[in-house]
Design a protein around this nucleic acid. Structure first.
Length: 760
DNA sequence: TGCTTCACCATTTTT
DNA sequence: TGGTGAAGCA
């Protein structure tokens, strides 16, 4: 390991140190690492060792004395990626890595804004609103304009505003560009939203980028400062940058032009978040002197998996030609299974996972199941529980999205930022303290009209017009609690202590305890966990002893930029379930992609909107996550949101070359006509014969039950424990209702799982 | 004010 | 199917 040296000074440029950094790199990787000044584009295919190239490049720049550590800005999109990169760089260069900025776009912007937001008329302790907070604000602004939320969905308005910001348009510029009534309305709301956000001293996620761009554009001195500070800028996942991020990079690099971007246009799957694939496709036009390096050797997957991935992505037109290859083995065929419905699909997955773990020696935490929409996880979860296979779901409801966590954080936010009206709204009557919507609305509108902070308004409740005596008393009580907490906030350096006091003195915990329900207990536990997070923060902070920023502000900034991916657990022997979007950047020994059906994946919406290329890229991302085993499944029937649909297999399945695939089709369970023996397994264009491939669905079940048997109303049946009965009705989802002779009771049973058979 | 009921609606979402 | 939000009622 490299030894730490004097502040900012290059490491001993010992030849061996430098050599070690480029040893074990393949030629294009080496070229990227050794590239000196000037723009560099790394087109890095999936699994081609781009993080390695990037981290080694950073280390190389430092080791050769071209860069001081403090001159490096390395940007990623996720905290997880940032953490990983930081760790890997530290392993290469040692403790001097602390002088580098290795972080996400949003963290970097937040940090820049913390020190200079005053130039834009913000106070330093601005609050970062997440999407939910920002939506609240949008709703409030819509209400002020009397916009009917039924006519215009607040979410849609928010999306419009967000996308405008990401294109660096302000409300006026947006208005000029638009024409429809909806867009006119959005423009109005947009304008007010910006005003109210500013008044609340709050920024949403987009603001972090946009305001930083503003800051640098409007202030030559600050721009100059950062241009000189970050002489070397490196960006990961460049294909996912939007206009604002693009502009930010431009501003930072226009002098020195030492911009390295790494990306793969074939993995651009966030256009709906305003990522602009043009940024990477046109990089060479923007920087004509750019060096382009292609990383095509893959170190992750088998040849079979790569060929399949290449074949699928080759269907896309809008891409730079690239072909992944490997020196590795051919590996096994890709398994494509067509199942009856989503339950059969889930059973197939569970049984295969079980087999892989038992027979192939694959660890459970090396298995992942990907799906297109979160709703698909439920059936799978039910089945995994039944199979007693432990799993974790990434995505869905996040820790920081839980109501109680948001409440607690809102208390802290309001303490840190007395103008924060959204946080105020959240906590003012939680726990209940007799301040209803009326009172709350009066307080807010009084703040709006007088231009005072909400904080000051509640402290002088008697001045607010229209408040009754009871309301005034309630507000006064609330204000007293908050003032006491704020005193504590100012005197104590510990965020954990403050949080603890907040939870107690606000009566929040008390109210939870009074509920005496399991849920409330769970919520109290979650809050305890949050206190734990704060304790950890306190502890780390004491070590690092950071500057002039108030601990509370720093804590809030940190957790508001946290996401669910960060909670992913490793090494606990859990199968991982997530959407394809969340899969980017990860890898597993065995990967299942379920729901490969037209309308599900590709999603019907994307088909309608003609976004097939992006869906295909998403497919490519999914396929290239697999190291050894790859399974794709589809179901002939699927119940999504109550209704049931019949879907054709996904076009992506037909795009897989036949010779790489073992296709299996389970017995069609056609209606209630019963299974026809001869057709239990058909073969779809592929290689497998009957009998060998798909395990009979019977074998997949945990509990033995005679399954392909179909029950009909009126059938006499025998249950292993309830005895004889008769089927009184059959419900969707293989549920049969049976009236048992023994006690005359009706029971609903899962036809597929219950130990139930027809009486002969 | 607060609870219940009913209608509606439903990709993906790094921050 | 289930989660959300607004109207309706005690």
């Amino acid at each position: 390991m490299a030894t730490e040296t004097e502040f900012g000074a290059p490491l001993t440029p010992g030849a061996s140190q430098v050599e070690r950094l480029i040893a074990d790199l393949n030629p294009p990787q080496r070229e990227a690492v050794e590239h000196g000044e000037g723009p560099l584009l790394m087109l890095a295919g999936a699994g081609s060792g781009k993080t390695r190239a990037l981290t080694h490049r950073i280390a190389y720049l430092v080791a050769t004395g071209q860069a001081r550590p403090s001159e490096i800005l390395a940007i990623t999109f996720t905290n997880k990626a940032a953490t990983e990169m930081r760790e890997r760089v530290e392993r290469l260069v040692g403790g001097v890595s602390r002088l580098m900025w290795v972080m996400t776009f949003h963290s970097a912007c937040a940090r820049i804004l913390r020190s200079d937001a005053e130039r834009l008329g913000y106070k330093r302790a601005f609050t970062i609103y997440d999407q939910a907070d920002s939506l609240r604000m949008v709703k409030r602004c819509m209400a002020e304009f009397d916009v009917d939320p039924k006519r215009f969905a607040p979410r849609a308005v928010q999306a419009q505003i967000s996308s405008a910001k990401n294109r660096l348009l302000d409300a006026e510029a947006y208005r000029e560009e638009q024409s429809s009534f909806f867009e006119e309305t959005v423009a109005d709301v947009f304008g007010l939203y910006e005003k109210r956000m500013h008044e609340a001293n709050a920024m949403d996620f987009d603001d972090l980028l946009v305001r930083t761009v503003d800051l640098l554009e409007l202030n030559a001195d600050i721009r100059d400062r950062y241009q000189r500070a970050f002489r070397w800028v490196l960006v990961d996942e460049y294909q996912d940058t939007n206009r604002a991020q693009y502009r930010l990079l431009q501003l930072l690099c226009e002098q020195h032009r030492n911009l390295t971007v790494v990306g793969d246009e074939s993995q651009s799957v966030y256009s709906f978040r305003n990522a602009d694939i043009r940024n990477i496709l046109d990089f060479e036009r923007d920087y004509p002197d750019a060096t382009v390096v292609k990383l095509e050797q893959n170190y992750r997957s088998t040849q079979t998996i790569l060929e399949a991935s290449n074949a699928v992505i080759a269907q896309n037109r809008d891409r730079k030609p690239k072909n992944l290859w490997t020196e590795g083995d051919r590996g096994d065929s890709i398994q494509v299974a067509e199942l009856d419905d989503e339950h059969a699909e889930a059973r197939y997955v569970a049984a295969e996972v079980e087999r892989l773990c038992a027979e192939e020696g694959i660890a459970r935490d090396e298995v992942a199941v990907f799906y297109r929409v979160n709703a698909q996880s439920r059936v799978l979860e039910d089945t995994l529980v039944r199979f007693e296979l432990p799993y974790q779901v990434i995505g869905g409801t996040k820790f920081y999205d839980r109501a109680e966590i948001k409440d607690a954080v809102a208390y802290l936010q309001f303490l840190a930022n007395p103008a924060d009206a959204v946080s105020f709204q959240r906590i003012v009557n939680s726990p209940r303290r007799g301040i209803g919507q009326q009172t709350e609305a009066r307080l807010i509108s009084h703040a709006n009209t007088t231009g005072a902070d909400v904080w000051d308004v509640i402290r002088e409740a008697e001045r607010v017009p229209g408040l009754g005596a009871a309301a005034q008393r309630a507000v006064r009580r609330f204000a007293d609690v908050m003032v006491a907490l704020r005193d504590r906030a100012e005197s104590s350096a510990s965020v954990a202590e403050l949080l603890d006091a907040v939870l107690r003195e606000s009566g929040y915990l008390e109210a939870l305890e009074a509920e005496r329900t399991i849920e409330a207990e769970g919520r109290a536990e979650n809050l305890q966990e949050l206190v734990g997070v704060a304790q950890e923060f306190d502890a780390n902070r004491e070590v690092e002893g950071d500057s002039d920023v108030r601990p509370l502000d720093e804590f809030l900034a940190q957790i508001s930029l946290l996401s669910d991916q960060d909670s992913m657990r490793e090494g606990e022997s859990l199968i991982t379930l997530m959407t394809l979007h969340n899969a980017k950047g990860l890898e597993y020994e065995a990967v299942f992609i379920i729901g490969c059906e037209e309308g599900v994946f590709p999603h019907s919406r994307s088909i309608e909107e003609g976004n097939l290329e992006e869906e295909r890229r998403l497919c490519y991302v999914g396929l290239t996550r697999a190291k050894q085993q790859l399974y794709l499944t589809c179901a002939r029937r699927r119940n999504l949101f109550g209704g049931h649909g019949h879907n054709l297999p996904s076009r992506f399945l037909t795009e897989l070359p036949d010779e790489l695939v073992a296709r299996q089709v389970s017995a069609p369970r056609t209606g209630w006509s019963g299974a026809r023996g001869g057709e239990r397994e058909a073969v779809l264009g592929g290689s497998f014969g009957s009998g060998g491939g798909l395990p009979d669905t019977d074998d997949l079940r945990k509990q033995p039950s005679p399954s392909l048997v179909q029950f009909r109303t009126g059938d006499d049946v025998i249950h292993a424990s309830f005895g004889e009965g008769v089927v009184t009705s059959v419900e969707p989802g293989s549920v049969v209702v049976v009236r048992f002779a023994g006690d005359g009771a009706e029971r609903k049973l899962m036809a597929d799982y219950a130990p139930l058979r027809k009486a002969s």
